[in-house]
Amino acid sequence: MSDEQNTNSGQVPAPVDRSGEVIGVRKGMFGANNGGDTSGYGGLVRTVTLPGATSRPYGGWFDEVADELEGALEEQDLLPSEAIEKTVVDRGELTFHIAREHLPRVARTLRDDPALRFELCTGVSGVHYLGDKGRELHAVYHLRSLTHGRLIRLEVSTPDSDPHIPSLVEVYPTNDWHERETYDFFGLVFDGHPALTRIMMPDDWQGFPQRKDYPLGGIAVEYKGAQIPAPDQRRSYS
């Protein structure tokens, strides 16, 4: 946000955590998206950042898992720094950001390594960060280890222009439907999925409805003589 210094609000340094991933910009006082800001703080610009990378030690069993994972990857002649883009510890949860080309290998390692043993994948959740240029689409996997009673998160990101992620169905067959669902809603293409087709929406549906640039699709409702716009068309604050 280099233009932030040029605005008036730039004179007062805002306590922005710059280490994290910037996912968007919030303007004005209350986040009114239409209808203008009448608070007098309409020029206020704040960046929204997700928690940034954490440095060691992570605490608890997190270090153990990270060490084991890095060691196991090195054994396979894969530089951990190449596969793991960054590690985030936030709110007591461990997240590995994985480079997408290495995802299946990392997942297989996490599943098979006796010290890791993340046997259960609880599916994939897509997130569309429209403001995160070059890394718009994220696929978030949660892996659970029943052996050790642990839960970690893998996060993979792709640009909107090339929404391809290798499929994990080979490693975790349970991801079959989950990946189809994420494809259906976000247009993320999971390469290597046996039958990547729409699952929720009708087969001839146009677009991917849960992306941020897809409208909610509500219609205006008539109530007591007035038209109430759909929730995404209303004047609102966020």
Partner: peptide, 13 residues
């Protein structure tokens, strides 16, 4: 009857 609270892309209103 009217789509109710689900005024969105998926539900017939």
């Amino acid at each position: 009857s009217s789509g109710g609270m689900f005024n969105n892309y998926a539900i017939v209103q």
